[in-house]
Design a protein around this nucleic acid. Structure first.
Lengths: 251, 251
DNA sequence: CGGGTTTCTCAGAGATTTCACAGGTTCGGG
DNA sequence: CCCGAACCTGTGAAATCTCTGAGAAACCCG
């Protein structure tokens, strides 16, 4: 089920209308905190655990709809946790967190059951999107919840990663896609460069804030090219996206 | 929830009707005082702390709806305070105060959970507006509380930063926007130039007092142009805004 | 390994915004 | 009716913010 919050953001809900529950397992506190904040902001209920033992215990009584699981834990490795998780909560999808260099195929094997993974350092957009996908697909949330975002004649499919405007297909790079997704999930709302950076770029990104400007520029070239622009600059405040023709009565 | 006070100002309230509670943490007394005044004037309940230890203690028993947190504190840096805050009060949104130049590196990742920040030197309007936004979005206050201010046919949307009069969109610069917001949050009330200066300009502004006149002039050109004026001068007292047609004899 | 792609830094051009200054205008009291 | 104070607004310069081209480095894939 989906509901629309007052801000116009769409939230996932469980069939009974209660909020989605997610268990986050990672031994680095900074990571669990970062994720907790971001996921709570999605309107989800979060519990955290810092090791395998705690994870199992919490999982048993919290009954999460999804689990975020770091593959390198102190007491037992992610694999054992995963095994036990599977035995006790076979229905619950898992989003793995792995180091970039971790053996990709091994992870790939694990995700066979409809699970998914994200490599560290990740961007919050990525984690949130993947989790939404998992939850949507495993039916913890209403199945009808769509994977397509639309703002005006601009469409973005979160599953296929296809983007089109007015029917024309548009090819975006990974970063462009995430930026656009973030904008489109917050239509008509000014997003500051800092917010965008925090959300779309990896948490360890240390670069210049003007990458945001740069990527906005790329996006404009691709989706606003020639047409009436949908991406707008609010000088000194940030950027926002909104439908084009809008003879805005809503102001 | 929103309620309208006898003076016509709109205040945020918690779902149970009690006032919003905000904890302000900064070691510079001048700052905590400045903020306390301004925030109390909003009708909120304020507590202050000057260091991390005090902040945690106060937070535990005060249970604030939002926290204003300076990122450079004496005993432990803002980050540690933030960490502990997050652990104990995971739901409470934080508004960070940071130095202008620190923005790039330090803040990264902080606004991820829907938190926000303001750079020093800030204007009170900015802090208040951001706090209202945080509280509104995180649902400490009634979710129906709107982001649109309206006076007569003049509309100002705090989310999209859009302003329109009688349907016509109006482009305002950042300063013009803040000034208009301040006027509109106090409709039919005379605001002195000093009040405006204190509220809309940064606390360290050292310029000529006639910037206010100048910006009022800009605003008039944009929102009163041709139409029946909504911004009025009370010679020797200040300015006020009110709906146009009001044949108010109140002189 | 090599070529096409993607990400990102850097820097300059350009646009916009902020603000001081000063002369002109209006208001209100005497 | 006059005068000074208060207010308004044009001008222009400095400060700030944004956009974008160019190119280096990292990356991906066969």
């Amino acid at each position: 089920m989906t509901a629309t919050s007052p801000q116009g953001r769409t939230e996932l809900l469980r069939p009974d209308g209660s909020p989605v529950r997610v268990l986050v397992v990672d031994d680095e506190q900074s990571i669990t905190e970062l994720l907790s904040m971001a996921l709570r902001y999605e309107g989800w209920q979060i519990r955290t655990a810092s090791d395998g033992g705690g994870a199992m215990q919490t999982a048993r009584e919290f009954r999460p709809d999804a689990v975020v699981l770091d593959m390198m834990l102190p007491d037992m490795d992610g694999l054992s946790v995963l095994g036990r998780m599977r035995r006790e909560l076979p229905e619950v999808p898992v989003l793995f967190l792995t180091a970039k260099d971790a053996v990709e195929d091994r992870i790939a094997g694990l995700t066979a059951g409809g699970d998914d993974y994200v490599t560290k350092p990740f961007s919050l957009e990525e984690v949130v999107a993947r989790l939404r996908g998992l939850i949507r697909r495993t039916g913890a949330a209403d199945r009808r919840s769509e994977s397509v975002l639309a703002v005006g004649d601009l469409m973005l499919d979160e599953d296929s990663h296809e983007v089109s405007r007015g029917g024309d297909n548009i090819h975006l790079t990974a970063t462009e896609f995430e930026l656009l997704r973030f904008l489109m999930r917050n239509p008509r709302r000014v997003l500051s460069k800092a917010q965008i950076l925090d959300r779309v770029w990896s948490y360890d990104f240390g670069g210049q804030a003007n990458v945001v400007e740069l990527y906005i520029s790329y996006l404009r070239r691709k989706i606003d090219a020639g047409r009436e622009p949908m991406i707008h600059t609010r000088r000194g405040a940030g950027y926002l996206i909104k439908p084009a023709m809008a003879a805005t009565t809503t102001s």
